Simulated scan of single mutants.
Amino acid sequence: MPHMKRAPLLTLLLALGTPAADARVRLGELLPAHPWTSPDREVLVVYSHDCGDLGDLWGAVLSAGLPVRAVNAEDVPAPAPRGVNVWRGPEATAFARALRVGAYPTVLLVQGGRVLNAWEGNFSGDLGLGR
């Protein structure tokens, strides 16, 4: 049997079309079911108890001037800033997993219930709002 050379483009297309075990949040997707009414644009922070000090992250998202939602996943309560309503419990963890969050914390910029942008574990504080 002759040795077949792999077609790099075909390999790439197959890899892109196959959901990976470590699939990530996808831009443009609708948020999974959640208990709040989504405004036109909002920031969603999905975090767990083992994220460390999130003071700078909370400061950055709160200063954006958009509604902020917090999802405390993985069933261990962790604090959020005063005034931020936190969703906790098994449903919150199921929400994070349905989003395919790959790293905590994950910051999502959401518009019309769809993920506009996502930062998984590496949020720099810039939501790209062009202000």
Rank of each mutant, 00 (worst) to 15 (best):
E120C: 11
T11M: 14
N72D: 15
L27M: 14
R41L: 08
P32R: 04
G102K: 14
M1N: 03
L10E: 13
L16C: 13
L10W: 08
L30N: 11
R100H: 15
P67D: 07
A78D: 04
P19W: 02
R100F: 09
G121P: 09
G128S: 11
L57R: 09
E74M: 13
V101T: 01
G59E: 00
G65W: 09
H49Y: 09
W36R: 11
R97K: 07
L62W: 03
G52H: 07
H34I: 02
G121L: 12
R88S: 05
P90C: 01
E91R: 15
P79Y: 11
A64F: 00
P67L: 00
A33C: 01
H34C: 05
D56I: 01
T106E: 02
P8A: 10
C51M: 02
G59V: 00
L127S: 05
R82K: 06
S48D: 15
F123N: 03
Y47T: 03
G113Y: 07
E91A: 15
L109H: 09
G55E: 15
G65H: 03
G17S: 14
G83C: 09
A118G: 05
A103G: 13
K5I: 13
L16Y: 04
V71M: 07
V68G: 04
S48V: 00
A73D: 07
A92H: 07
W87R: 04
G128C: 07
A20R: 09
G125Q: 02
V25N: 05
S38L: 15
H3F: 08
E91P: 11
R100Y: 11
L116E: 13
W58A: 04
D75R: 12
A64P: 04
R41M: 08
P35C: 12
P8N: 04
G125Y: 00
A21S: 13
V76K: 03
